[in-house]
Design a protein around this nucleic acid. Structure first.
Lengths: 144, 144
DNA sequence: GTCTATATATCGTAATACGATATAATAGCT
DNA sequence: AGCTATTATATCGTATTACGATATATAGAC
Protein backbone atom coordinates (compact mmCIF):
# COMPACT_ATOMS: atom_id res chain seq x y z
CA UNK A 1 0.00 0.00 0.00
CA UNK A 2 1.43 3.31 -1.07
CA UNK A 3 1.32 6.15 1.44
CA UNK A 4 -0.47 9.35 0.58
CA UNK A 5 2.47 11.19 2.10
CA UNK A 6 5.54 9.41 0.89
CA UNK A 7 8.80 10.14 2.68
CA UNK A 8 10.68 10.60 -0.56
CA UNK A 9 8.75 12.66 -3.06
CA UNK A 10 11.98 12.69 -5.02
CA UNK A 11 12.98 16.32 -5.22
CA UNK A 12 15.98 16.93 -7.41
CA UNK A 13 18.68 19.40 -6.46
CA UNK A 14 17.70 21.15 -9.67
CA UNK A 15 14.26 21.75 -8.25
CA UNK A 16 15.67 23.20 -5.06
CA UNK A 17 17.89 25.44 -7.14
CA UNK A 18 14.97 26.63 -9.25
CA UNK A 19 12.86 27.53 -6.23
CA UNK A 20 15.83 29.13 -4.52
CA UNK A 21 16.37 31.20 -7.66
CA UNK A 22 12.80 32.36 -7.58
CA UNK A 23 13.06 33.41 -3.96
CA UNK A 24 16.30 35.21 -4.73
CA UNK A 25 14.64 37.22 -7.48
CA UNK A 26 11.80 38.00 -5.12
CA UNK A 27 14.27 39.20 -2.52
CA UNK A 28 16.02 41.37 -5.08
CA UNK A 29 12.80 43.16 -5.86
CA UNK A 30 11.81 43.46 -2.22
CA UNK A 31 15.28 44.70 -1.28
CA UNK A 32 15.10 47.34 -3.98
CA UNK A 33 11.68 48.38 -2.77
CA UNK A 34 12.72 48.59 0.87
CA UNK A 35 15.82 50.53 0.03
CA UNK A 36 13.88 52.97 -2.13
CA UNK A 37 11.33 53.49 0.62
CA UNK A 38 14.00 54.11 3.23
CA UNK A 39 15.72 56.62 0.97
CA UNK A 40 12.39 58.37 0.63
CA UNK A 41 12.22 58.50 4.42
CA UNK A 42 9.65 55.74 4.90
CA UNK A 43 9.83 52.40 6.67
CA UNK A 44 8.94 49.83 3.99
CA UNK A 45 5.63 48.90 5.57
CA UNK A 46 4.54 52.53 5.51
CA UNK A 47 5.22 52.61 1.80
CA UNK A 48 3.05 49.53 1.37
CA UNK A 49 0.32 51.17 3.38
CA UNK A 50 0.37 54.26 1.16
CA UNK A 51 0.24 52.07 -1.93
CA UNK A 52 -2.63 49.99 -0.58
CA UNK A 53 -4.63 53.11 0.27
CA UNK A 54 -3.92 54.86 -3.02
CA UNK A 55 -4.63 51.67 -4.94
CA UNK A 56 -7.84 50.87 -3.12
CA UNK A 57 -10.71 50.28 -5.50
CA UNK A 58 -14.16 51.40 -4.45
CA UNK A 59 -16.14 54.46 -3.61
CA UNK A 60 -15.37 54.74 0.08
CA UNK A 61 -11.99 55.46 1.51
CA UNK A 62 -10.32 52.45 3.08
CA UNK A 63 -10.52 51.91 6.82
CA UNK A 64 -7.95 50.56 9.25
CA UNK A 65 -9.46 47.10 8.89
CA UNK A 66 -9.36 47.22 5.11
CA UNK A 67 -5.71 48.17 5.32
CA UNK A 68 -5.02 45.27 7.68
CA UNK A 69 -6.60 42.80 5.26
CA UNK A 70 -4.68 44.27 2.34
CA UNK A 71 -1.35 44.12 4.16
CA UNK A 72 -2.14 40.76 5.74
CA UNK A 73 -1.43 42.02 9.22
CA UNK A 74 -3.50 41.89 12.40
CA UNK A 75 -5.98 44.73 12.94
CA UNK A 76 -4.18 45.99 16.01
CA UNK A 77 -0.93 46.10 14.06
CA UNK A 78 -2.66 48.15 11.38
CA UNK A 79 -3.96 50.55 14.01
CA UNK A 80 -0.43 51.06 15.28
CA UNK A 81 0.93 51.52 11.77
CA UNK A 82 -1.74 54.08 10.97
CA UNK A 83 -1.04 55.92 14.20
CA UNK A 84 2.66 56.20 13.38
CA UNK A 85 1.84 57.39 9.87
CA UNK A 86 -0.57 60.01 11.14
CA UNK A 87 2.13 61.29 13.50
CA UNK A 88 4.48 61.40 10.52
CA UNK A 89 2.06 63.60 8.60
CA UNK A 90 1.31 60.96 5.98
CA UNK A 91 -2.27 60.01 6.74
CA UNK A 92 -5.49 61.68 7.74
CA UNK A 93 -7.95 59.81 9.94
CA UNK A 94 -11.62 60.70 9.86
CA UNK A 95 -14.39 58.85 11.64
CA UNK A 96 -16.83 57.36 9.19
CA UNK A 97 -20.26 59.02 9.15
CA UNK A 98 -22.37 55.91 8.74
CA UNK A 99 -20.35 53.73 11.12
CA UNK A 100 -18.51 55.73 13.70
CA UNK A 101 -16.40 52.78 14.74
CA UNK A 102 -14.61 52.90 11.42
CA UNK A 103 -11.76 55.28 10.71
CA UNK A 104 -11.40 56.33 7.10
CA UNK A 105 -7.91 56.90 5.83
CA UNK A 106 -6.60 59.40 3.34
CA UNK A 107 -3.19 60.44 2.05
CA UNK A 108 -1.79 63.87 2.80
CA UNK A 109 -0.24 65.84 -0.08
CA UNK A 110 3.16 65.00 1.37
CA UNK A 111 2.35 61.30 1.20
CA UNK A 112 1.02 61.62 -2.32
CA UNK A 113 4.24 63.23 -3.47
CA UNK A 114 6.42 60.59 -1.86
CA UNK A 115 4.30 57.75 -3.21
CA UNK A 116 4.36 59.21 -6.69
CA UNK A 117 8.14 59.35 -6.75
CA UNK A 118 8.45 55.88 -5.28
CA UNK A 119 6.02 54.45 -7.78
CA UNK A 120 7.89 55.91 -10.73
CA UNK A 121 11.08 54.35 -9.42
CA UNK A 122 9.33 51.01 -8.93
CA UNK A 123 7.92 50.98 -12.43
CA UNK A 124 11.41 51.58 -13.80
CA UNK A 125 12.94 48.89 -11.65
CA UNK A 126 10.21 46.41 -12.48
CA UNK A 127 10.98 46.87 -16.15
CA UNK A 128 14.46 45.58 -15.32
CA UNK A 129 13.58 42.85 -12.84
CA UNK A 130 10.36 41.51 -14.29
CA UNK A 131 11.96 39.31 -16.96
CA UNK A 132 14.22 37.58 -14.43
CA UNK A 133 11.27 37.13 -12.10
CA UNK A 134 9.06 35.57 -14.74
CA UNK A 135 11.92 33.42 -15.96
CA UNK A 136 12.65 32.17 -12.45
CA UNK A 137 8.98 31.41 -11.90
CA UNK A 138 8.85 29.43 -15.11
CA UNK A 139 12.04 27.66 -14.17
CA UNK A 140 10.22 26.02 -11.29
CA UNK A 141 7.77 24.33 -13.63
CA UNK A 142 10.55 23.39 -16.03
CA UNK A 143 12.49 21.70 -13.24
CA UNK A 144 9.57 19.51 -12.16
CA UNK B 1 12.34 73.82 -20.41
CA UNK B 2 10.99 70.49 -19.28
CA UNK B 3 12.34 69.10 -16.04
CA UNK B 4 14.06 65.75 -16.02
CA UNK B 5 12.14 64.98 -12.84
CA UNK B 6 8.64 66.27 -13.40
CA UNK B 7 6.45 66.71 -10.35
CA UNK B 8 3.51 65.07 -12.04
CA UNK B 9 4.48 61.97 -13.97
CA UNK B 10 0.76 61.40 -14.24
CA UNK B 11 0.11 58.15 -12.44
CA UNK B 12 -3.45 56.94 -12.72
CA UNK B 13 -5.29 55.42 -9.80
CA UNK B 14 -5.53 52.35 -12.01
CA UNK B 15 -1.75 52.10 -11.99
CA UNK B 16 -1.62 52.33 -8.23
CA UNK B 17 -4.26 49.64 -8.03
CA UNK B 18 -2.33 47.37 -10.38
CA UNK B 19 0.88 47.67 -8.41
CA UNK B 20 -0.98 47.27 -5.14
CA UNK B 21 -2.54 44.11 -6.55
CA UNK B 22 0.85 42.75 -7.42
CA UNK B 23 2.17 43.42 -3.94
CA UNK B 24 -0.91 41.79 -2.47
CA UNK B 25 -0.30 38.62 -4.47
CA UNK B 26 3.31 38.67 -3.37
CA UNK B 27 2.21 38.97 0.24
CA UNK B 28 -0.21 36.09 -0.19
CA UNK B 29 2.58 33.84 -1.33
CA UNK B 30 4.98 35.03 1.33
CA UNK B 31 2.32 34.67 4.02
CA UNK B 32 1.66 31.12 2.92
CA UNK B 33 5.35 30.39 2.97
CA UNK B 34 5.89 31.89 6.42
CA UNK B 35 2.92 30.07 7.83
CA UNK B 36 4.07 26.76 6.35
CA UNK B 37 7.54 27.25 7.77
CA UNK B 38 6.22 28.08 11.23
CA UNK B 39 3.99 25.02 11.19
CA UNK B 40 7.06 22.98 10.33
CA UNK B 41 8.74 24.50 13.38
CA UNK B 42 10.99 26.94 11.53
CA UNK B 43 11.22 30.72 11.57
CA UNK B 44 10.70 31.76 7.94
CA UNK B 45 14.25 32.97 7.48
CA UNK B 46 15.60 29.58 8.57
CA UNK B 47 13.49 27.97 5.88
CA UNK B 48 14.98 30.33 3.33
CA UNK B 49 18.45 29.47 4.56
CA UNK B 50 17.81 25.75 4.13
CA UNK B 51 16.48 26.35 0.65
CA UNK B 52 19.42 28.53 -0.33
CA UNK B 53 21.89 25.94 0.91
CA UNK B 54 20.11 22.99 -0.69
CA UNK B 55 19.67 24.94 -3.93
CA UNK B 56 23.23 26.15 -4.08
CA UNK B 57 24.84 25.36 -7.41
CA UNK B 58 28.50 24.51 -7.46
CA UNK B 59 30.97 21.96 -6.25
CA UNK B 60 31.77 23.38 -2.86
CA UNK B 61 29.33 23.68 -0.04
CA UNK B 62 28.13 27.22 0.59
CA UNK B 63 29.77 29.34 3.30
CA UNK B 64 28.26 31.84 5.69
CA UNK B 65 29.14 34.62 3.29
CA UNK B 66 27.54 32.88 0.34
CA UNK B 67 24.41 32.45 2.40
CA UNK B 68 24.43 36.14 3.31
CA UNK B 69 24.65 37.14 -0.34
CA UNK B 70 21.88 34.74 -1.29
CA UNK B 71 19.55 35.98 1.45
CA UNK B 72 20.58 39.60 0.94
CA UNK B 73 21.44 40.05 4.59
CA UNK B 74 24.59 41.38 6.25
CA UNK B 75 27.35 38.85 6.93
CA UNK B 76 27.05 39.22 10.68
CA UNK B 77 23.32 38.58 10.47
CA UNK B 78 24.03 35.41 8.50
CA UNK B 79 26.52 34.30 11.14
CA UNK B 80 23.85 34.72 13.81
CA UNK B 81 21.27 32.91 11.73
CA UNK B 82 23.66 30.03 11.12
CA UNK B 83 24.48 29.85 14.79
CA UNK B 84 20.82 29.57 15.75
CA UNK B 85 20.28 26.89 13.12
CA UNK B 86 23.25 24.90 14.29
CA UNK B 87 21.87 25.02 17.83
CA UNK B 88 18.57 23.83 16.43
CA UNK B 89 20.21 20.81 14.87
CA UNK B 90 19.57 21.96 11.31
CA UNK B 91 23.04 22.82 10.07
CA UNK B 92 26.56 21.47 10.31
CA UNK B 93 29.47 23.87 10.26
CA UNK B 94 32.88 22.70 9.10
CA UNK B 95 35.93 24.87 8.60
CA UNK B 96 37.01 24.91 4.97
CA UNK B 97 40.28 23.12 4.27
CA UNK B 98 41.73 25.53 1.74
CA UNK B 99 40.61 28.72 3.49
CA UNK B 100 40.24 28.23 7.19
CA UNK B 101 38.39 31.53 7.60
CA UNK B 102 35.42 30.10 5.74
CA UNK B 103 32.80 27.91 7.37
CA UNK B 104 31.13 25.42 5.07
CA UNK B 105 27.50 24.68 5.69
CA UNK B 106 25.56 21.47 5.31
CA UNK B 107 22.03 20.28 6.10
CA UNK B 108 21.41 17.68 8.77
CA UNK B 109 19.05 14.80 7.92
CA UNK B 110 16.44 16.51 10.11
CA UNK B 111 16.73 19.67 8.03
CA UNK B 112 16.56 17.72 4.79
CA UNK B 113 13.34 16.07 5.87
CA UNK B 114 11.73 19.35 6.89
CA UNK B 115 12.84 21.10 3.72
CA UNK B 116 11.53 18.27 1.57
CA UNK B 117 8.07 18.48 3.12
CA UNK B 118 8.03 22.27 2.91
CA UNK B 119 9.10 22.22 -0.72
CA UNK B 120 6.36 19.81 -1.70
CA UNK B 121 3.83 22.09 -0.03
CA UNK B 122 5.29 25.11 -1.80
CA UNK B 123 5.16 23.48 -5.19
CA UNK B 124 1.50 22.68 -4.63
CA UNK B 125 0.70 26.18 -3.46
CA UNK B 126 2.60 27.77 -6.32
CA UNK B 127 0.47 25.84 -8.76
CA UNK B 128 -2.48 27.69 -7.24
CA UNK B 129 -0.95 31.13 -6.78
CA UNK B 130 1.27 31.40 -9.83
CA UNK B 131 -1.47 32.35 -12.30
CA UNK B 132 -2.67 35.23 -10.09
CA UNK B 133 0.91 36.35 -9.60
CA UNK B 134 1.70 36.39 -13.29
CA UNK B 135 -1.60 38.07 -14.06
CA UNK B 136 -0.97 40.78 -11.48
CA UNK B 137 2.51 41.33 -12.84
CA UNK B 138 1.16 41.68 -16.36
CA UNK B 139 -1.54 44.01 -15.07
CA UNK B 140 1.12 46.55 -14.20
CA UNK B 141 2.24 46.80 -17.82
CA UNK B 142 -1.33 46.87 -19.04
CA UNK B 143 -2.15 49.78 -16.74
CA UNK B 144 0.70 51.95 -17.99
C1' DG C 1 -33.08 47.45 26.07
C1' DT C 2 -29.87 43.72 26.53
C1' DC C 3 -26.46 40.88 24.45
C1' DT C 4 -23.27 39.83 21.01
C1' DA C 5 -20.25 41.04 17.41
C1' DT C 6 -17.30 44.35 15.13
C1' DA C 7 -13.74 48.27 14.69
C1' DT C 8 -10.13 50.41 16.62
C1' DA C 9 -6.74 51.31 20.29
C1' DT C 10 -3.17 50.39 24.06
C1' DC C 11 0.47 47.99 26.33
C1' DG C 12 3.94 44.63 27.32
C1' DT C 13 6.77 41.14 25.00
C1' DA C 14 9.49 38.64 21.68
C1' DA C 15 12.10 38.07 17.54
C1' DT C 16 15.67 39.48 14.51
C1' DA C 17 18.41 42.55 11.58
C1' DC C 18 21.86 45.89 11.99
C1' DG C 19 25.98 48.90 13.37
C1' DA C 20 30.06 48.77 15.75
C1' DT C 21 33.51 46.11 16.93
C1' DA C 22 36.63 42.05 17.57
C1' DT C 23 39.42 38.06 16.04
C1' DA C 24 41.46 34.99 12.78
C1' DA C 25 43.24 33.87 8.40
C1' DT C 26 44.79 35.12 3.82
C1' DA C 27 46.84 37.95 0.12
C1' DG C 28 49.82 41.36 -1.65
C1' DC C 29 53.83 43.98 -1.58
C1' DT C 30 58.67 44.90 -0.93
C1' DA D 1 60.17 36.45 5.29
C1' DG D 2 57.81 40.40 7.41
C1' DC D 3 54.25 44.00 7.35
C1' DT D 4 49.88 45.75 5.94
C1' DA D 5 45.45 45.60 3.98
C1' DT D 6 41.60 42.77 3.09
C1' DT D 7 38.35 39.14 3.85
C1' DA D 8 35.43 35.78 6.72
C1' DT D 9 33.15 35.05 10.67
C1' DA D 10 31.61 36.13 15.38
C1' DT D 11 29.80 38.95 19.44
C1' DC D 12 27.13 42.43 21.69
C1' DG D 13 24.00 46.19 22.41
C1' DT D 14 20.13 48.53 20.21
C1' DA D 15 16.06 49.61 17.59
C1' DT D 16 12.06 48.39 15.08
C1' DT D 17 7.76 46.25 14.68
C1' DA D 18 4.37 42.54 14.76
C1' DC D 19 1.67 40.10 17.93
C1' DG D 20 -1.28 38.46 22.02
C1' DA D 21 -4.05 40.04 25.55
C1' DT D 22 -6.97 43.30 26.69
C1' DA D 23 -9.92 47.58 26.67
C1' DT D 24 -13.45 50.78 24.76
C1' DA D 25 -16.91 52.41 21.60
C1' DT D 26 -20.36 51.57 18.33
C1' DA D 27 -23.59 48.70 15.77
C1' DG D 28 -26.79 45.06 15.01
C1' DA D 29 -30.04 41.20 16.52
C1' DC D 30 -33.71 39.78 19.03
Amino acid sequence: MTSVHPDEPGLSSEQYAAIADFRFQLRRFLAFSESAAMQAGLPPQQHQALLAIAGHRGEERPSVGVLARQLLIAPNTAAELVHRMEQGGLLTKTASVDDRRRTELGLTPKAEAILRRLTVAHLEELRVLEPALVRALGGIDRAE
